[in-house]
Design a protein around this nucleic acid. Structure first.
Lengths: 239, 239
DNA sequence: CCGCATAAGTGACATCAATCACACCCGGTT
DNA sequence: AACCGGGTGTGATTGATGTCACTTATGCGG
């Protein structure tokens, strides 16, 4: 099995759709904010009047239910842009943005963004690309998590993690972030016990390896096969 | 239980985010096309270079897997706009657009749209709202279908159908489109047998009624409770 | 070094949902 | 009238997944 460089180096950021000039325009209207691990950038119900650009760190977008379950929708890292852009006026967040590592983010007020979009038609067009990409990410996850059972969902998540974070590690792919079974479970809507058993099974079959909460993918093809992977572009097949 | 008028009349179209003038601008660059039931507007893999506006009829967006499963992601009806807008250049569809009723659609070439967006900043802004709404629809479905088991998923779909199609029917809500058990099953990633049993159970508990493939919702609150409905706005909580 | 907290790991069991098999119903042929 | 085809309805069975209960491993702070 060969690993292409895109999978082996820190690859796809969702801001790849922007030209450097436009990305700079966005940065120019942002202000920096430091957030420590464990804090939240926003909670569901908060007014959605900002976008966030991660300069450094990691943020997880989650949904909590009244009966204590939790679902992780996305994980963002440096150079990712996120936020809700339904309406440039009044809309509230449907999810929580939990800071999972000490982070520095650029905050963009939607009001300022709107002005910029009016001035620069090309930026507006790139913005739509960005929104379209995010939406396709959600749609493809939807498919993966619904159609192939929990093992398929877990495979999909492992592949997405490898696209978003994977580093070359000999012949294999290392996912260089520590994830607990519970965290993985929250990404696929399963219990930590199920995840634990599935991981153990994959390990036994020599599909993956793990130590100290770090996962190494040894047989990516097996994982792809199990969730009927269609080899979507890496900027869509991400966490 | 009272039914608000929004639920009782043909309510939310996803083009509600556009002002009438902007909607007209969109229509002005579209051309009409007639498609008969059973045909497809596009297949996955086709070049995604158009948007579609339904003047009359119904279209279902589906995903087929190589092992014969099918998933229905959305259903669109008159005055809904759909299509994929990742990139204004080269991108291919990830889903199929199946015409489920004889339809008349307006086709908008993305090339033409791009020109229009450049000329009219306000349209570009409304476009982003539209994209944002579609995305939130997908995200909320994601949550509903993953977190509350198959019964929760079915409830979510019934509520969404009632928001998108519901008509007042005495004290209850009639969903005036005929849906087979299989069609419902494809909306939630379940088997027709499971759907059949769940519907029978709901009927027994006097939550719903059905005849001739038409469903009447008698206890919307029960359904909302089962899927932990958060009463999202009706333009998001739709099929 | 001990105690505590957090997470992994695992067995037993219950529950849920898919699968398989088949009867039935109904409308449209032939 | 007989015979489709497509859909519903339902039981029996199997397999997948969640739940509960508990043990073990590990890191951290006193």
């Amino acid at each position: 099995m060969t690993i292409n460089t895109a999978e082996a180096t820190q690859p796809y950021k969702n801001t790849d759709v922007f030209t450097p000039e436009n990305l700079n325009k966005l940065k120019s209207i942002s202000y920096e904010y430091s957030a420590s691990a464990g804090s939240y950038l926003y909670w569901e119900g908060d007014l959605a009047d900002k976008l966030f650009y991660i300069i450094e760190g990691q943020v997880r977008i989650t949904k909590a239910t009244d009966d204590g379950k939790q679902l992780t929708l996305y994980m963002f890292q440096h150079q990712d842009l996120f936020g809700q852009l339904d309406s440039l006026q009044t809309s509230t967040h449907s999810f929580n943005a939990e800071v999972t590592e000490d982070s520095i983010v650029g905050i963009i007020q939607l009001k300022d963004l709107e002005v910029l979009l009016w001035q620069h038609g090309d930026l507006a067009v790139e913005f739509m690309k960005w929104m379209g990409l995010m939406h396709r990410t959600t749609q493809t996850k939807f498919r993966d998590l619904l159609l192939f059972g929990k093992p398929g969902a877990l495979c999909s998540v492992l592949i997405r993690l490898s696209n978003s974070y994977g580093k070359e590690h000999g012949e294999h792919i290392l996912i260089p972030i520590r994830l607990t079974n519970t965290e993985l479970a929250e990404m696929i809507g399963a219990t930590r016990e199920s995840v634990n058993r599935m991981l153990a099974e994959f390990k036994k079959q020599n599909i993956i390896e793990y130590n100290d909460n770090l996962i190494i993918i040894k047989d990516l093809l097996y994982l792809k096969d199990l969730c009927h992977c269609e080899d979507c572009p890496g900027n869509i097949c991400r966490m």
